[in-house]
Amino acid sequence: MAAVAAMGLALFVLPLAGIVQRADWAHLVDHLRTPEALEAIRLTLVASLSATALSLVLGIPLAWVLARSRFRGLALVRGLVLLPMVLPPVVGGVALLSAFSLRSPLGGWLHDTFGVQLTFNPAGVVLAETFVAMPFLVITVEAALRNLDPRYEEVAAGLGASRFTVFRRVTLPLVGPSVLAGAVLAWARAMGEFGATITFAGNIAGRTRTLPLAVYLQLETDQDAAIALSLVLLGISLAVLVALRGRWLERS
């Protein structure tokens, strides 16, 4: 058992060790101080955090409906919500284009009415990242809601609380840790998003070129810079995931 577990762990650790060993540590900071790298890091953080916020706003109600509703076609709705997890991200990007490009009815209307163009725009990066990342939040929060003891909510409702008050004061606090976990999962997935972003939002320096896109471009011209950027991505993600795990252990 332990041997197999070690093999499983090795599958994750070996590639990471490989990239750490390949890095040009002496010039790491120089690679990250270029205007392009700083721009990509800033854009990645802003876009992934915005995508997480959007996922929270849209995803929690969605998870609640999936966990609590009973209607024909619920399984289909859940399938649709989780589809981006298995869809090749590039296909997701093409799907987003067909809905929001200037030539699509909705995208054209948004542009003509509000002057909004999502493609080649940081907002498009946020949309692409939300599309790909939100299912991670929904699936996590839905699982927590399903495992919730309904008596707490019943008691609150019996004491006269409105449905919204019950949700806000009882349900949400009870599933709080899962909301946090789901948000972090969604955020980490958004940080690493590549296919949907490059297809839908494009690859424009300073506007839509996030870290994964910059890494991909740099790999062919300057591997050391690409690896330095990858390490930033890995470092931030690992730090947050480790911190989160620590929180869980303390609580249980």
Binding site: F12, P15, L16, P89, A188, R189, M191, G192, F194, G195, P212, V215, Y216, S230, L233, L234, S237, L241
Partner: peptide
């Protein structure tokens, strides 16, 4: 996360 960049 570990494999995402590479596989894309």
């Amino acid at each position: 996360v570990a494999t995402g960049c590479g596989s894309d």
